[in-house]
Amino acid sequence: MLLAYQMAMENPKMVLAEGVEAMEFQELSQQYGISGVPDTVINAAGRVVGAVPEQQMLAELIRTLGK
């Protein structure tokens, strides 16, 4: 979660990073089919399951957003 926060901090006009507690926001987590945590949803399209290194998260962002 901290990695997502770091990313938002770098460009807060474009990036919104939310840590979502799955128990309290059950509807949302069911909507995405969250089964394990941490699970990062990128623009409601990309997914990164588990805590991953910065490089891998960046690769997933590029894959989801393009460029």
């Binding site: 979660m1 770098e10 939310e18």
Partner: peptide, 28 residues
């Protein structure tokens, strides 16, 4: 006041042209 990210990640995020929404699901 500093993200601490590596230069490559910083550069990518600075040039975003579409909004990025990260939802990180966790459990307590």
């Amino acid at each position: 006041r500093d993200s601490g990210l590596n230069p490559q990640t910083r550069a990518y995020l600075k040039t975003l042209t579409t909004p990025l929404h990260l939802e990180v699901f966790v459990t307590p």
